[in-house]
């Protein structure tokens, strides 16, 4: 088990290193004349050259990469080109906001999918068909469209929740709920739908396996068989889908945060993209990949706990 964890952590670190290095070189190599772009066409050549020196752009790329990497290892991602603020400072508050919303959406997706998926696969009939159609549509519609419909109908017309803004849960839990429920819903719809399909499908596959018949013949109730045996064995593929959903939600949060004007990572991504603020974007990439690696590790541990073959190999 210890070796298994160590192997997964090592794989995560290698993933993080390769992706961030590739992103660094792609972003800095394809950026063109950054200093010129930042100052605009009216600036003189001397001004541009001074700006380039100020940003360290006159150094060889490998040196800059080395500096960035050694800084990043100590949590220092440089300074923003646009606001001159340290990137770490810009990220720190926002990561928590986005992570809170996305993790809540993942949890809602997981629970919702287990309930709906096992219901659909064990009940059958119209319950199954309704859940199937709903999950198909839910998975097909982009999350930000759902976000806009929620703003329009639930927030503006019905006035149940705040249409925009964000209140930290540490400030006020009810305030957080009034601002976070709609964005979490917008993100979770696709998550619930996608994972439900997988849970339903794997449970149906699992239910057809021989051991289910044997357990029935041992006198176990169908409830025990469904929740302790079928669901457990069906959870592997469903957890993999949930991990992919987390990645998709991190991306979806960018647009959803824009719709609800939430000061999270997504909003920062949009503003720094518009100002071509490469150091901030690099910071965002690193944070995103770190989050994904940590979540994948958690999912791996859960898989190992559920599936002895993973654990014992």
């Amino acid at each position: 088990m210890g070796r298994f964890i160590a192997r997964r952590i090592l794989a995560g670190i290698s993933l993080l290193f390769v992706i961030t290095s590739a992103a660094y070189f792609l972003l800095y190599l394809s950026g063109g004349d950054v200093a010129r772009n930042l100052l605009g066409p009216t600036a003189s050549d001397a001004q541009v050259a001074a700006k380039a020196t100020e940003l360290g752009l006159d150094q060889p790329l490998l040196n800059r990469y080395w500096d960035w990497l050694s800084g990043a290892l100590t949590g220092d991602f440089g300074t923003s080109w646009a606001s001159r603020a340290p990137v770490t400072e810009l990220l720190s508050g926002r990561v928590a906001v986005t992570l809170t919303i996305v993790v809540a959406a993942v949890i809602v997706s997981g629970i919702g999918a287990v309930v709906l998926g096992s219901l659909a696969s064990s009940r059958g009939g119209w319950v199954d068909r309704t859940i199937q159609v709903a999950s198909l549509v839910g998975a097909a519609v982009p999350g930000f469209l759902i976000a806009m419909v929620l703003v329009l109908v639930v927030a503006i017309n019905l006035g149940w929740f705040e249409p925009t803004g964000y209140i930290n849960p540490s400030t006020s839990i009810t305030g957080w709920l009034s601002t976070a429920v709609l964005p979490i819903t917008a993100l979770a719809v696709a998550g619930v739908a996608g994972v439900t399909q997988q849970v339903r499908g794997s449970m149906l596959d699992e239910r057809r396996k021989d051991y289910v018949r044997t357990l029935e013949c041992r006198g176990l109730s169908s409830r025990t068989i469904t929740y302790q045996h079928v669901l457990r064995n069906a959870s592997g593929p469903a957890l993999n889908v949930l991990a992919l959903m987390f990645v998709a939600m991190l991306g979806g949060a960018v647009v959803v945060e824009q719709v609800f004007s939430i000061p999270g990572l997504g909003k920062l991504t949009v503003t720094s993209t518009l100002s071509s603020d490469v150091p901030v974007i690099m910071g965002i990439v690193v944070v995103t990949v770190v989050l994904v690696v940590i979540l994948n590790l958690l999912i791996d541990l859960l898989q190992a706990w559920l599936n002895p073959k993973v654990r014992l190999s």
Binding site: L15, A23, L26, V247, G252, T269, V289, V292
Partner: peptide, 16 residues
């Protein structure tokens, strides 16, 4: 698979 496509597209947009 570890990268949210929206983040990648925005990062690419910032340079191209």
């Amino acid at each position: 698979l570890a990268l949210p496509s929206m983040v990648v597209l925005l990062a690419a947009r910032s340079v191209i």
